[in-house]
Amino acid sequence: MKLVLASNSPRRRQLLTDMGLPYKIRLREVDEDFPAHLRRAEVAEYLAAHKAAAYAPDLAQDELVITADTIVCLENDVLNKPADRAEATAMLTRLQGRAHDVFTGVCLLAGDGRQVVFSDQTTVHFRALSPAEIGYYIDTCQPYDKAGSYGAQDWLGMAAITRLEGSYFNVMGLPTHRVWAELEALGALPGNAQLR
């Protein structure tokens, strides 16, 4: 099948490329609101499926769209992308010195109607950070497009993450091991990627 990545994230694009999966990009605006009663992994899965539904009418029979959404959760609070510097500062101040969970929901929707929705969880441990370190990160990395106001691959991830329980790539925005396994189960890996 022909893979379509419905994401503007350079990290997701790089991960699929590094996995050796050929794909094309297809983008459209989809709102990222979710029902208030959803919690943690449910939010990520809901958003991934919601995004995929927007692409369904235009999928060819031999296409499969990959959509994903990554959220950061501190206990039951969902920390989305910060609106401004003040919100980014508040989020990082809450996260510093604590563990939090990162969930990435993924939807694989094929043009023939088959659909798989799943999520992966990684627990991230941050060391304590000073206000100066938080300010430096925000000023130099501008993390306004990142859930929880940080990227694991950025300076803050290298300087602050002390331990991960789960997939590092999940924190970057795509649980690559699960994506590969689910594509394989659907028979949707490109011919040159069929290794078994």
Score class of each variant (00 low, 15 high):
Asp58Met: 08
Thr67Ala: 05
Cys73Ser: 08
Ala56Thr: 01
Ala54His: 14
Ala86Tyr: 07
Asp62Leu: 04
Asn76Trp: 11
Ala60Tyr: 01
Asp84Ile: 01
Thr70Leu: 07
Asn80Ala: 11
Ala56Arg: 14
Asp58Ala: 13
Ala83Tyr: 15
Ile71Arg: 08
Glu75Lys: 15
Ile71Trp: 01
Ile71Lys: 02
Asp62Gly: 03
Val78Asp: 07
Arg85Phe: 12
Tyr55Trp: 13
Asp77Gly: 00
Leu64Arg: 09
Val72Glu: 06
Ala86Met: 07
Glu87Val: 08
Leu79Lys: 05
Val72Ile: 15
Glu75Tyr: 10
Ala83Val: 14
Thr70Tyr: 09
Ala68Cys: 14
Gln61Lys: 07
Ala68Leu: 12
Thr67Glu: 04
Ala68Phe: 05
Lys81Cys: 03
Ile66Ala: 03
Ala60Cys: 00
Gln61Tyr: 09
Ala86Asp: 13
Leu59Glu: 01
Glu63Leu: 09
Ile71Pro: 00
Ala54Met: 09
Ile66Ser: 00
Tyr55Val: 11
Pro57Asp: 06
Glu63Val: 12
Val72Gly: 02
Asn80Gly: 15
Leu64Ala: 13
Ala60Ile: 00
Leu59Tyr: 07
Pro57Met: 06
Ala54Glu: 07
Val78Leu: 14
Asp62Lys: 05
Pro82Arg: 02
Leu64Phe: 11
Ala56Ser: 06
Ala54Pro: 05
Tyr55Lys: 09
Pro57Ile: 11
Thr70Gln: 08
Ala68Glu: 02
Leu64Tyr: 11
Leu74His: 12
Leu79Thr: 06
Leu59Ala: 02
Ile71Val: 15
Asn80Lys: 13
Ala56Cys: 01
Asn80Glu: 14
Val72Phe: 13
Glu63Met: 10
Ile66Asn: 01
Ala86Gly: 09
Cys73Tyr: 00
Ile66Gln: 01
Glu87Leu: 06
Gln61Asp: 10
Glu75Ala: 15
Leu74Gln: 07
Asn76Lys: 15
Gln61Phe: 09
Gln61Ala: 14
Lys81Asn: 08
Ala54Gly: 14
Val65Pro: 00
Ala54Phe: 12
Val78Asn: 10
Asp69Met: 10
Pro82Gly: 04
Arg85Val: 14
Arg85His: 14
Val72Ala: 13
Lys81Tyr: 06
Glu63Gly: 09
Pro82Phe: 03
Pro57Trp: 07
Thr67Ile: 12
Lys81Ala: 08
Ile66Arg: 02
Pro82Lys: 01
Leu59Lys: 04
Ala54Asp: 04
Lys81Met: 11
Lys81Glu: 04
Pro82Glu: 00
Arg85Glu: 14
Arg85Tyr: 14
Ala54Lys: 09
Asp77Thr: 10
Asp69Glu: 10
Asn80Thr: 09
Val65Tyr: 03
Tyr55Pro: 03
Leu79Asn: 03
Arg85Cys: 03
Ile71Leu: 11
Asp69Gln: 08
Val72Gln: 05
Val65Leu: 10
Ala83Thr: 15
Pro57Ala: 11
Ile71Ala: 05
Asp58Asn: 06
Glu63Tyr: 11
Val65Cys: 08
Ala86Thr: 12
Asp77Ile: 01
Pro57Asn: 09
Cys73Glu: 00
Asp69Val: 08
Arg85Ala: 14
Lys81Gln: 09
